[in-house]
Design a protein around this nucleic acid. Structure first.
Length: 560
DNA sequence: TTACCTTTGAAGATA
DNA sequence: TATCTTCAAAGGTAA
């Protein structure tokens, strides 16, 4: 926590409490090295690729680890077999520094601004020029003209500035560069942003940017059509495509949170988008103030439209009726955690860097990048997530994550285990190495067969090269490699076969990006689950000894 | 059309 | 208390 506090600069003054999530960082003091190591990276893709080639060549000769590798605990083994996809990790090393170098999150609030407008096409596709710059934002961001039905959120009064408005989620159909409404700047002590970085000015062109409805809080989705017509120059944690995450009731806003206010044009858009039946006036999940949190999503948005008129009477409802009514309830989504926030922000970059489109593959990259982030960088997301949760709890004090649990019969863990033997019959898609091995990305890395991100020793099979010293996330969720029960089952059932086959087919094909190998503990589990099939995957005897010392906690889990 | 995949983290459920 | 389960985003993929 001290480290984080120092990194944020402001030290105390966090009225939201100590960043407990950051505590795991406190005992690791290599952050400066890490940050410095990435400091020179740039976001330019061409430069990155060329540097990747050079570095990969150097690496192949010296087999020396990168700075991040040097940070890795010595007990973390490395793998001798190289992975075709490891260039992605190299991309990560290169670009993580660039992404987080300088402006990205030196402090809050910041917004990431696309250069010369949106890199996304009206249909949501990413245009070639997806580069973004970061714009430090004045707080609050929203522009509410006088006379609007909403409060003026741009009030320079300290009271406004003190408001914490963690608006970080965005509706899917919003413009991808929907602005991030940051939290108050009393965190991370951003200081007063330069006047030239006012949200009204394009930092690139210097052209004053007229206020736009889509610049309003990303919590509030605009209609897809409206978004498509309105390029949004601001963005940060934004969905690339997506369904609306947050809905706004036609009732307007009476909310103390400045960023939750909207201007007249926004109200117009909202009213045109959300029909009364979509967002009931007194919808469940609404904040007592009547302000909907962006996590409110009318189920109808995703589900087929139903009769507008809801039968309020709750007498003798049939299960179907009850189900329908439940479906009509506004769906309050869970607040995004730190990694989800990170993913939202970085996904577009990864997609732009690679030809990969599948989210599963992208997420693997992002997962590794996440671990490659410095603690300070992660801390920013943890802080955002924490405030996100706080606001969420304020808006929906009665909401519980349980509310979003699927309505189904509970299956006790014991029962799950008892039925685990039948997992094979329920196995789904084989999920081991999602990223293509042959040509995972538009990178020159795979041309020479040297995995850019690949370590020199086989021990890396037990630890992602990207993974720094164990983070709190790893400590808290050592088996989160694949959280799906069925996937875990497959892990034990298929991992061995996969790994052995991969090892047999190619001595360098076992990739650390494989979910099985990307994290030490899960791999351990997989290894111990199917030891006979891991002859070539076992990195070292010492590592194996360590692995065997760990309990085998998951073997087979049945699919639902 | 729907669920899966894949990632991490938070929260609830369960043993 | 520890462990397990579910869900949050995302979009291609497969059934």
């Amino acid at each position: 926590s001290n480290l984080v506090g120092a990194g944020r600069g402001s030290g105390g003054g966090d009225d939201l409490g100590a960043p407990d999530e950051l505590i795991p960082f406190q005992d690791e003091g290599d952050e400066q090295d890490k940050g410095a190591g990435r400091g020179s990276a740039h976001g330019d893709l061409d430069e990155l690729k060329s540097s990747l080639v050079n570095e990969s060549e150097n690496r192949s000769g010296s087999a020396s680890g990168s700075d991040s590798e040097a940070e890795r605990p010595p007990q973390q083994p490395r793998e001798s077999f190289q992975k075709p996809r490891d260039y992605l990790a190299e991309v990560r090393r290169q670009q993580d520094g660039g992404f987080f170098k300088g402006p990205p999150y030196p402090s809050y609030p910041f917004l990431m601004i696309p250069e010369l407008g949106s890199p996304y096409l009206p249909n949501g596709a990413l245009s070639p020029g997806g580069a973004r710059t970061y714009l430090q934002m004045k707080w609050p961001l929203l522009d509410v003209p006088a006379g609007a039905t909403l409060k003026d959120t741009r009030s320079p009064s300290p009271a406004h500035l003190s408001n914490k408005v963690p608006v970080v989620q965005h509706p899917h159909h919003m413009h991808p560069l929907t602005p991030l409404i940051t939290y108050s700047n009393d965190h991370f002590s951003p200081g007063s942003p330069p006047s030239h970085l006012s949200p009204e000015i394009d930092p690139k062109t210097g052209i004053p940017r007229p206020p736009h409805p889509s610049e309003l809080s990303p919590y509030y989705p605009l209609s897809p059509g409206a978004i498509g017509q309105i390029p949004h120059p601001l963005g940060w944690l934004v969905p690339q495509q997506g369904q609306p995450v947050y809905s706004i009731p036609p009732g307007g806003f009476r909310h103390p949170y400045p960023a939750l206010a909207m201007n007249a044009s926004m109200s117009s858009l909202m009213s045109s988008r959300f029909s009364p039946h979509m967002v009931p006036p007194s919808a469940h999940g609404l904040h007592p103030s009547g302000i909907p949190h962006p996590t409110i999503v009318s189920p109808i948005v995703k589900q087929e439209p139903t009769q507008p008129s809801m039968s309020p009477g709750g007498n003798s409802k049939s299960p179907i009726t009850v189900k329908k009514e439940e479906e009509k309830k506004p769906h309050i989504k869970k607040p995004l955690n730190a990694f989800m926030l990170y993913m939202k922000e970085m996904r577009a970059k990864v997609v732009a860097e690679c030809t990969l489109k599948e989210s599963a593959a992208i997420n693997q990259i992002l997962g590794r990048r996440w671990h490659s982030l410095s603690r300070e960088e992660q801390a920013k997301y943890y802080e955002l997530a924490r405030k996100e949760r706080q606001l969420h709890s304020q808006l929906y004090p009665t909401w519980s994550a349980r509310d979003n649990y699927r309505k189904r019969e509970k299956q006790p863990q014991q029962q799950i285990q008892e039925t685990g033997n039948s997992v094979a019959s329920k196995s789904k898609k084989l999920c081991v190495q999602y990223l293509p091995t042959e040509k995972p990305c538009d990178s020159p890395a795979s041309s020479h067969g040297s995995m850019l991100d690949s370590p020199a020793t086989p021990s890396t099979a037990l630890a992602s090269p990207a993974a720094p010293a164990a983070t709190h996330s790893e400590q808290a969720q050592p088996l989160s490699l694949t959280t799906k029960p069925e996937a875990r089952a497959q892990l034990s059932l298929h991992s061995a076969a996969f790994l052995s086959s991969k090892a047999a087919s190619s001595s360098s094909s076992l990739t650390s990006q494989s979910p099985l190998l990307s994290r030490p503990i899960p791999f351990t589990t997989a290894l111990l689950t199917s030891p006979p099939s891991f002859p070539t995957a076992i990195p070292s005897q010492a590592a194996l000894a360590v692995l065997q010392a760990q309990p085998l906690s998951l073997v087979t889990k049945p699919a639902e």
